[in-house]
Amino acid sequence: MKRVQFSSPYLPYLFLAPQMAIIFVFFYWPSVQAIQSSFYLEDPFGFGSTFVGLSNYSDALGSAQYQAIARFTVVFTALVTFLSLGIGMLLAVKADAVLKGSAAYKTLLIWVYAIAPPVAGLMGMMFFDQHIGPLVKFAALFGWDMKVGLNYNDTAIAMIIVSVWKQIPYNFIFILSGLQSIPASVREAAAIDCRSGTRRFWTMTLPLLAPTAFFLLVINMTYALFDTFGVIDVMVKDKAANNPITLVYKVYMDGFRGNDLGGSSAQSVILMIVVFVLTIFQFRFIERRVHYN
């Protein structure tokens, strides 16, 4: 590590100040505000607030509806993370083996990433439209009468498909570049040492991709928890009713539709803690098994 000497001990802090200011304004300050307001019951019209202690938390955690949404969020996050990583990796490994026309092939796969989440949600809605949706027609071939927006499970499936579809190109780019950073001679040495391509993938390619995969795991979980907001919003059209939503969407619903700022703050604090714990877990237990070259 290179050590730089500054003439004044305050100079480094001065250099750090703009970054710290941004983090403070957009992260720490709202966080503190959220924590603070989570202990209060706010008047919906802004005429004051009452200190209620932990009752916002106990209300949220005790509610059956909140628990159901939490369960859905866990399933949703796990599936979206697993499927988008898995499919992205499968496509990248296959694309990497393509010799002719690989540039066109790769570009087509990456394209989807340029679509904004709400637009992706909208396109997803059209795919699953009751009258014109090709996927609904496809499902009908198997006798499955999909009712996205009405049936809880059908909506959940559509939401997962659209979210995964949106995230695959991102994973694809990273895994492809990860694959291409594995030296050709190491792959060739492995080809001489091991006949089975599948076995080579598990013993050679995957361990060498682990740093990329770990990074993507963290990113994908965050994506599934928070960035799918746009997709969900378009899918449930602002009226969740009986439809599945994730915890983040519930925060929004309670805070901005229900005007329950205290309860909504308590929920976002809970989410914050969940993400904090998840991150620590990932770095403590998964990253240790990652080999960095």
Binding site: S185, V186, A189, A190, D193, M204
Partner: peptide
């Protein structure tokens, strides 16, 4: 290649880093 019963030594060693 795996069935040719040969072994190869590469210029940059090509050791498995993990």
């Amino acid at each position: 290649p795996a069935d040719r019963d040969i072994a190869m030594v590469f210029q940059n060693y090509a050791l498995y880093p993990h």
